[in-house]
Simulated assay, not measured.
Amino acid sequence: MTKRQITCLACIAVVMVSGLGAAAPSAGATRHAVHPGESIQKAVDAAKPGDSIVIYPGTYRESVLVTKDRLTLRGFGARTVLMPAPAAARAANACATAGNGICVTGTATNTIDRISIRSLKLTGFKKNGLWATWTDRLSVNRVTAEKNGTWGLAQERSTRGIFRNNTARANGDAGIFIANTVDREGGAVDTLGAQVVNNRMSENRIGVTLRRVRNLMVRGNSMTANCGGVFVVGDESKPAAGAMTIRGNRIYKNNKFCPGNTRLPVIQGSGIILTGSEATVVRGNRVRDNVGTSVLSGGIVLFQSFVGAVNTNNVIRDNDVRGNSTADLANRGTGTGNQFIGNVCTSSEPAGMC
């Protein structure tokens, strides 16, 4: 290499470094600190896109509504606790009025993008710990959602959400809930690759519920002591629910009893349930000791939906499915094209799938 070439490379390096410094997106970001006795909501209201709100250890009796893009809310793990506001203060915002802990709320024409919620605890809310609607690239990491009335961590009408390393415990319905919409019927939403990864769900009604959604990954999660582990819910609407991957999860002893309702029978001892799903891959999961006597009981169960929609073209392969009752593998519907390949199990309905 000539001296001239070396000199030119050095010039390029200087220009690149200078350019990176000038274009750094965080250059104008502000860090807002919130201490016990102060308002998280006031910090959110004062923040601009790109800012972060650092919530110091303590108990905060409030709900927080987020309606602007690119904010980070970060606590100090289980030492940063959000609980419901006193009754007299619950009209402070729509999130509190609805009974939720943190709400990220967009619209069909203006989604709320790139919100990050990290390292805090949401507990005791009448409805949901976290409720997100019309969001894109929501990131929820190391959040504990405990003893909330309906869902621990939930989103609808949203795309590319990532739920990672969270704990959802003793919530009234699902620990983590992802849906197309909760206020009307309709076809499955393409989540554009949402992820539910490395979370821990216990003592909920369901660990993870995926209701009328498509194109997402559920991987590496641990689910125990729920009524059911993973529930994929579809119906006759088009596009159908499915086109997702459920892989490498540990789903064991989900033997809590949950009574039936107008839509579903009793749930107990259910590992992974597919109802009205198409083209879903259930692969490499360890599904053990889920025991019950419901029509939904068993290790991995295919069952028609409450409106009679069937499962089609799903692939159940290479799972370790043992010690479950009433069966390790069960295909209890009339769908077609479903495949059971290479699973380790001892009992199946119909016989011969092990």
Rank of each mutant, 00 (worst) to 15 (best):
T334C: 09
A188E: 14
N338S: 02
A87I: 07
T346D: 15
S347Y: 07
A47S: 13
Y252R: 13
R90D: 12
T7N: 08
V310G: 04
N199C: 07
G308S: 02
R288K: 12
D235Q: 03
R286P: 00
R164I: 13
T224A: 07
G220P: 00
R142A: 15
R118I: 13
C258G: 07
T167V: 12
G248H: 04
Y56H: 15
T334A: 14
V44S: 00
V64K: 00
G242H: 08
G21V: 14
D235W: 12
T262R: 07
K147C: 04
S297I: 11
S237A: 13
D318Q: 10
R70K: 07
F303E: 06
L138S: 01
V182Y: 15
E349C: 00
I162Q: 07
Q304W: 14
F163S: 02
E236K: 06
A92G: 00
T275I: 09
V44K: 01
T181A: 15
V315Y: 06
N166W: 02
Q5F: 12
V197C: 05
G186R: 10
A145E: 05
G21D: 09
V287Y: 01
G50E: 09
V14M: 14
T80C: 05
S39K: 04
G28M: 02
I12K: 02
A174T: 02
D51T: 01
S158G: 11
G50T: 04
T72Y: 03
V182I: 07
E146Q: 11
M83N: 09
L130Y: 04
V17T: 12
F303S: 06
V64W: 02
N93D: 11
R200T: 13
A85F: 06
G129L: 05
G335P: 13
S26M: 08
G342T: 06
A78H: 14
N171H: 12
I53N: 00
C345R: 06
I102H: 07
F76K: 06
N93L: 10
V14W: 05
D328G: 13
G333H: 03
V64I: 01
P36E: 08
Q339P: 05
K3F: 15
E349D: 07
V307S: 04
I206A: 07
G242S: 12
N249T: 07
D328E: 06
L210G: 13
G175T: 08
A13Q: 05
R70I: 02
V232R: 08
N166F: 12
F340W: 06
P86H: 02
G234Y: 15
W131K: 02
A29C: 07
D328M: 05
G229L: 08
P57S: 13
R184S: 13
W151S: 08
T312R: 10
T72W: 11
T224C: 01
V14G: 10
Q41R: 01
R288A: 06
Y252P: 00
A174W: 05
G242D: 02
I272H: 05
G260F: 03
N285Y: 02
N254K: 00
T262M: 11
G106A: 14
T224H: 10
A179S: 15
L65E: 10
